[in-house]
Structure formats: C-alpha cells, structure tokens
Design a protein around this nucleic acid. Structure first.
Lengths: 337, 337
DNA sequence: AAAATAAATGACAGCGCTGTCAGTTTCCGT
DNA sequence: ACGGAAACTGACAGCGCTGTCATTTATTTT
C-alpha cells in the first residue's frame, strides 16, 4: 500500500496543505509544525507522487539536453556538468541525441510528450539553428543554448558563449612563436559554428604575422580520427610539407599523428601537431598533444544554472555567460619537457 | 491557450474517452472515428499533457539508467543502445550517474521523486549489489541488470549476461598460441564483477597450458590510463620482463603501451600488449590494440527490450539474454598485417 | 488590554487525463 | 427478420497533489 499525503496529514495532525508546504520547503510553516510533519513523513516513509505533483503544479522537474555529437567525451562532460547543477535542485536530466534525419516536429513532440520538460539545453548544431529556436519559443519551451562565439554586443540571455576563436588564436600564435611559417589546418566541417570560429582565429593570426596560407593547406572534414588520418596523409606527403599542423579537435589531431607515423615522420621533430579540446586522449596519445583546454563540464554548469534561473523565475538572468578556452602546451609542439 | 482533450472531443464530435482511446492506440475504435479524431488533433495541434496522463494512468514513460563508470565510451554506448529501443516505444531516458558516496535511500528517492520511473537499467557495479536489488524489489521498481557472468543454470529474467570470462579466455589463448609463456595481467579492481571474470578466464587458460603465473605478474588497479601506465612501468622494468601483457580494458592497455614507450620497448617486438572492450581508442592507439569486442550498444538494446517487456506486461520475458564477446586481433600482438 | 498587523494553517476546488462499467450500435447466424 | 454476441462509444468518478483564499492564531503597537 502506498502512502499518500493524506496519511501523513492524519498522522501529523495537520492538513494536507501543510504537509504539501513542508514537502516543498515553503516558508510559512512554524518550525515545530515542520518537525511534526517530517517525523510523520519518515515514519511512513512517504514520498510524494511526482506525477501528481507536476500535474497539479503544472511544473516539471525534468530538463532535456539535445545533441548530435559523436564525441563521447564531449557528451559525457556536458551531461556531468548539467547534472552537477540539476541534482542540487532535484531536477532530472533526460537525454536526447538527435540524428540528422529528425525533423523539428519530431523533436518538439517528444519534448512535450515524453516528459513535458521544464526546459532544454541545446548544444551545437541545434544551438545555431534559428528555425528550431523559433519553434521552441513558439511552443513556449524554455531553452539555453551553448554557442560558439565571442561575447557579442547584443547579449542573448539564453546563451552561453564559448569563444573558440580566441582559443584558436592562442594556439596559432604558439605555433608562430615556435618559428613555424608553413602551417596547415585540418578543421571540422562548417556545419558547426565552432569549426568556423576556430578557422577564423587561425586565419586571423596568420594574417597578423604576414603568413600566407594557401587554400590547399586548409582541409575541412568530419571531427573523426579517420578523417584526420586521411587529411594528414594528404598534407604530409606534399612536396612543400607543412612544418606544423593545427587540428580542429584532438581526435583529428590523433589521426594526423597516426598519419605522420605511417609516413615515418617524427613528431615534433619533423612535424609539429596541435589539437583542440583537451579531451583525455590528447594526454594519452604519444607524444602528448598541445591543445586548447575547453572545460565542458563548467560550460554545462553555466547552462544549467541559467536554465534553472529562467524556469524557476528566480535568480539573475541578465549577466552574460561566457567562457574562453586556454592553451595547454605539451610535447607534440615543443618536445620532451 | 493550450488545447485540451475536451477541445478535441468537441471538434471531432465524440467523447473525451474516445479521443483518449485514439491517442493511446487502443483497439476498440472504428477506423472512421479514429480518422475524425486524428483530423481534429492535427487541426488543433493537440498534444496530450504528459503529466496528467501518467498521473491518471499511474504509468510512467520514463526509464532511468544507473551507472558509476568513468569510461565515456561505455557510457555513451549504453545510452545509445537503450535509446535505440526506447525511442521506438516513446519512452524517455533519464540518466543517473551515481557517485560512490551516495547511499541507497538517495538513489531510490531520486528515482521515485524526480520522474517516478517505470523502471531502471542497472550497470555494474549496481547490477551486482544484492542489497540495492532487494530495495528496488521492495519499492516495487522494475529493473534489468547488465551483469558479468556466463549463462547460469538458474536464469534470472531480470538479467542480461555478458560472458567476460569467455572473452578473456579467447584473448589469453591467443597470447599462448603466439608462443608466450611469461604473461602478465593488469586487471581492474574487484569492485566490478567483470574484473574478476576477466581474471578468472585468464587464469583458467594459463592453467590449461601449464603456465605458472606468479602473484607479482597480476596487478589490480583502476580502469584508467594512468593506472595502466604505472602498472606497465612496474612490470616492464622487472628483471624477468613479461613478453606479453593482458590488460583489463583498452584504457589500461593504452597506459601499458605508453609505459613501454617510456622504457624504449617496442610493441609488439619487445612486448605484446592486449586490451579489452574494443573501444575506439584501441584502434587509435599505436600500434592498434588486439582486444576483445564487446558490443555495448547491442547489450543495452537487449536490456531495454527486456525492461519494456516487463513494465508493459507484454512480450516474452522467459528467454535468457546473453552476450559473448569475441577476439579482435590487431597489430599490438601480431605486428604489421 | 484592546486593536491592528503579521504569521500560520486549513477548506476546497480542480488540474487533464484514464479506468470502470454501462449503454448503444453493428454484425452475424439462423 | 430476429435474437444474441461482439464491437464500439460515452458518463462519470477520481487519481494525489497544489493554488487560492478564507480563517485562525501569534505578535506587535498604541
């Protein structure tokens, strides 16, 4: 037999409304009353019915995260960050990997149907899809987007800005300072803003240093090991072999590294390779990769915090949220330390 | 203004109960009636209120997965497999990474409080924790556990059995067949059944081949790169250096590989190294790792299927569910192919 | 000590749907 | 064409909680 709020009220000798107040930590309850209720709750091992609660209150304690990212480290980091924040407030996280084929209606439907979420966290590329954002607004679903961009003038309070370009500039500058002039880049496809931003940062630094980068030295590909390997082979078997290669993420960099090995080129002696993201295997590759650290757990925490502030209506939501990645130098560019 | 079931009923000219029947795909509705209702639903863009629905029906369309696993690839594979199955039936997945410190009550509470789940999928080590299983039964929460074991005589219909020992035997036999006699093992800690099973399989094969394995050749450690590295250094700098090392998973193996490199030992020429799991970086390491393939996506699909069968009451639940991993031979044991 | 104010508590309706069961229509065999 | 079974549909209660607002009790003010 499951205990209801009525049982608790009866045992504690108060009204069900008072029990409700205690369960929801509402302020207007005398301490002695609260204790009385809590004792009854414990004695009966009472737990409120979540369905009834969110039905009656029209409020959901579930938020969803949308992503389309093959990178396991990214995905788990984002999840962990979100949960770090949500757990404290007793929210649950439902996950929503979306395959490219799905259309907006399917996404919206499952958001409303499955769990009637309180809000959604959007990662790239959904965070960049204005049509989807409009649909969410129209359907009255709160959202926060994690987006690759420097802090703009007109700040969107729904956004967490990640300044990929700045990170890319740092690492590009590092390569230049090391004396490299023939530098190639293996970047992700344009479907993600981050790819574009990272390429932008790279190009900007090259220009600042009067380094010409021919079109053939820039390859766009998927964020995968295999794509990195393929691109690496192409670049490193050219007559004018680049002395440094900047990869769009660590996985690509690992692929390039593998290509170098296949061609019997030593890293960093024959070619210097840099990654992006500071994912675990940038440390596990050999040599360890110079990369740009992006604290995705922290970024996700920011996103969750903002989303909770929005759905609960309390907390400041005007403060801009942003994150700037930072350079991490390891062996793949400077050799043994 | 949000549309309710009443609006739809009015527009379609039927009772709300009939609309309810249509929305839930119940059988006893004439085709023409169904069409009439569907038209009204589309016209009004009606979506049932999930909270009200699960409140009234006492049924939840959410299941949770519990894990305590630092391995990003494992986690995302399990999630993907579960969702593959759940999506088709319009269930949602909430994720529940659990830190070691949490106690049973906290776990149960959040399961009941946050989303009143229909059921739970348990991965190791929770799947092996009888106290927790008992608590779940007592709280009337359906579960399925993914557990490391050969198919036993008394089959538990809540279990998906993964025969780690058999996989371990395959790879151990492979090492023996390659002519190795001085073989060491770097295994996970005993907190996971899988570690124990993998070690068992290894020992069994050694015994079958009359190979003595001294205690010092078996190291138990965390399933991490760093632990593998540490263990590798220890094993490979011994006087009687092993000619082959079997690691408990790919991450450990990568660590051992890194240790070999530090000691200027070539793999597979000086020492042969094997992993377990066939995670992506067994392919991305250099040389690529011989390993045991464990299809976690498939395993998770089995688990989800069984759980749905249990909570919905339809579908066969008597058939035993099991999976046997299989050997994958790559360069780290046999060299260039 | 009475009046005015604030704090704490309770009564009650109703959220939007589903389960139950009774009522109505259709179908079939004879 | 008729009775009975089967298929379909609707009326209605009520799930367990929260929001609103009225009521009671404690606290402060004059």
């Amino acid at each position: 037999m499951k205990t209801t709020i009525d049982d608790v009220a009866a045992l504690a000798g108060v009204s069900i409304k008072t029990v409700s107040r205690v369960m929801n930590n509402e302020p207007a309850v005398r301490a002695t009353t609260r204790d009385k209720v809590m004792k009854a709750v414990e004695e009966l091992n009472y737990r409120p019915n979540a369905a009834a609660r969110s039905f009656a209150s029209k409020h959901s304690f579930t938020i969803a995260v949308l992503y389309d990212n093959p990178n396991a480290y990214y995905v788990t980091d984002i999840q962990r960050g979100l949960l770090n924040c949500l757990r404290r407030q007793n929210y649950e996280l439902i996950i929503h990997p979306v395959s490219a084929s799905e259309n907006y209606d399917d996404i919206i439907s499952s958001l409303k149907l499955g769990a009637r979420v309180a809000g959604v966290v959007l990662t790239s590329p959904f965070s960049e899809d204005q049509t989807l954002l409009d649909r969410l607004t129209q359907e009255d679903i709160a959202y926060v987007k994690i987006i690759s961009s420097a802090l703009p003038d007109d700040i969107d309070e729904h956004a967490v800005y990640v300044d990929d370009a700045a990170g890319s500039e740092q690492i590009s500058r590092h390569l230049v300072q090391l004396g490299h002039r023939n530098i190639a880049a293996v970047m992700g496809t344009e479907s993600h803003f981050s790819s574009i931003q990272r390429l932008e940062g790279f190009k900007r630094v090259m220009k600042q240093n009067d380094i010409e980068v021919p079109e053939t030295s820039i390859i766009a590909s998927e964020y995968t090991f295999d794509a990195g390997q393929e691109a690496g082979i192409k670049l490193l078997s050219r007559a004018s072999r680049p002395s440094a290669i900047l990869a769009g993420n660590d996985e690509l960099a690992a692929g390039v590294l593998s290509a170098a090995r296949q061609l019997d080129l030593k890293c960093p002696d024959d070619v210097v390779i840099a990654g992006f993201e500071n994912s675990p295997f940038s440390r596990q590759s050999w040599p360890q990769l110079t990369t740009v650290h992006q604290n995705n757990i922290y970024i996700a925490e920011l996103a969750a915090l903002r989303l909770l502030a929005k759905v609960s209506g309390k907390g400041d939501t005007s403060e801009p949220l942003s994150y700037t990645p930072r350079l991490i130098v390891r062996e793949s560019t400077v050799g043994k330390v």
